[in-house]
């Protein structure tokens, strides 16, 4: 057979077969992966608000984020309450870190405006042992229990500026949104 037909044909067949295999695996792993992300989000919320047995999540319609805040990574705002007392506010944020990997995390702010830390829900493609440290307690606890105005002084992680900068920016945006819209 002519080489000009044979070679592309062979590659096309290999490509088609591998695509079929990928599609099949994707078909049955996609729902499990989506479920894992929701589970991680729930576990993160539980960890931020210890002992809150009935965590009620409410999306706030009247506090829409403006374009800049969305650019900083804020996705949605939850009110976490138990019975009738408000336990705190949670900003779900999603930022792009190193190499385009998306980091999704929950930023927690107490009702009186104290930033309570955050919890990483999912993290893609960050350098293990360097960028992934944003999920470690050592990193996020350094700006715990500070008034939301003073979050600007944060020690960044050595060698992981591309991962930490957007995370810090999102926390700033969340605290600013909080003081502008919710804090009385």
């Amino acid at each position: 057979m002519n080489k000009f037909i044979k070679l592309p044909l062979y590659l096309a067949i290999v490509g088609a077969l591998t695509t079929a295999a990928l599609a099949t695996v994707h078909q049955f792993t996609a729902p499990i992966i989506a479920e894992n992300i929701i589970k991680a989000e729930e576990a993160a919320l539980q960890e931020l608000f210890e002992g809150a047995i009935s965590v009620v999540l409410d999306e706030e319609p009247e506090h829409k984020f403006d374009k800049n805040e969305e650019k900083s990574g804020l996705v949605s705002l939850f009110i976490v309450s138990q019975d009738d007392t408000i336990l705190g506010y949670v900003y779900k944020s999603s930022v792009v870190g190193y190499k385009g990997g998306v980091i999704t995390f929950l930023i927690s702010i107490s009702p009186d405006g104290v930033y309570n830390g955050y919890k990483v829900v999912t993290m893609q493609d960050q350098t293990s042992g360097i960028g992934t440290k944003v999920a470690d307690a050592d990193f996020y606890e350094q700006f715990l229990d500070k008034e939301i105005t003073s979050v600007s002084e944060i020690v960044k992680l050595d060698g992981a500026t591309i991962t930490t900068q957007p995370v810090v920016d999102a926390i700033k945006a969340a605290t600013q949104h909080f003081s502008a819209h919710i804090k009385q």
Binding site: V14, G15, V25, H26, K99, Q126, T127
Partner: peptide, 27 residues
């Protein structure tokens, strides 16, 4: 192509069944 497909399949399976490990191994 074959190697990339096999690795992608393993990656999806790891995200589904070993989420913690897949997060910490990342890229």
């Amino acid at each position: 192509i074959i190697i990339a497909a096999v690795v992608s399949i393993i990656e999806m399976l790891m995200q589904a069944y070993t989420p913690q490990l897949s997060t910490s191994l990342g890229i």
